[in-house]
Design a protein around this nucleic acid. Structure first.
Lengths: 147, 147
DNA sequence: TCAAGTTGTAATATGATATATTATAAGTGT
DNA sequence: ACACTTATAATATATCATATTACAACTTGA
């Protein structure tokens, strides 16, 4: 069980837009670079737009980034793109038996710990800025050119 | 996208066995308490057995715990039960375009950070022992009885 | 103004996978 | 020997992520 590729698609998209600052980046171009269906890409972009991370106008060619990359963290993207925002990271089995002392209480006994784990992961995601990733991608590309 | 309920099923099972130390706990009893299909429960138990967390013998009634609860962490259970052990927490979109500088390099630019996040989450899971959970369940049950 | 191209979405199909179910083998213990 | 359990294979069902088809709404340049 894994976190949806929507997250990496979203990061890829933002980096692509940033890397091609001078040209108009369309959802078709992003679909080509990610190798993901254009409708899915537009769906992801739509969520990023709703979160205030990118800008776009219906009919107007090109997606742009709404704020400095140093102000966008992995967490922001993850939250923007995660469709099931309110469910936790862990999927609890649905209906433990209320007639069993353990079944009746296991959920509340575990919830705090599960949240603690999720929070720790999210805090780590808050540490990583998209400006870091652009930087890394650019150095890799430069090193490609010098060989 | 969430982490499979197999994890919480596994924890629930272990706690149930620990709570009923004196009686023989069968997979049927566990299925009843978790409200999960017996075959699934036995599959989870089978993985826990392979990881050295529980003991069982074909034909012999009852599942037992193989080592002190204080030596079993959430991480141990998570690893034991996670079917896709080698794939990471994040699902990367499959085939970014190698003809695009960003598409060609985004994966390696992100991988380190994604691992860092996963590691942070796993470290948090290593902090939590099943003895903590049994303790919490027992205090909740006791407080139920005093009301 | 109109035609080509783009964003934005709805509706549906496909594919993958987690859980449920059915069936049966193999072992235990009274 | 019989009832019960663990173990597992094979299949079905359900859910959900991604792909696809279709079309509406908008922009912009000719």
């Amino acid at each position: 069980m894994q976190i949806t590729s929507r997250f990496t698609i979203a990061v890829h998209s933002i980096i692509l837009i940033a890397y091609n600052q001078d040209m108009k980046v369309t959802s078709k171009l992003i679909a080509g670079s990610t190798n993901v269906n254009p409708v899915i890409v537009r769906g992801v972009l739509s969520q990023l737009k709703e979160a205030g991370i990118v800008n776009s106008r219906q009919g107007a060619t090109g997606i742009t980034i709404a704020k400095p990359l140093s102000e966008i963290t992995f967490y922001d993207v993850y939250k923007a793109v995660d469709s099931v925002k309110d469910e936790g990271l862990f999927h609890f089995h649905e209906n433990p038996n209320p007639d069993c002392p353990v079944g009746r209480n296991i959920h509340s006994a575990m919830d705090g710990r599960l949240n603690q784990i999720q929070t720790s992961m999210e805090n780590e995601m808050k540490q990583i800025r998209l400006s870091d990733i652009v930087g890394d991608v650019q150095s890799i590309i430069e090193s490609e050119q010098n060989s």
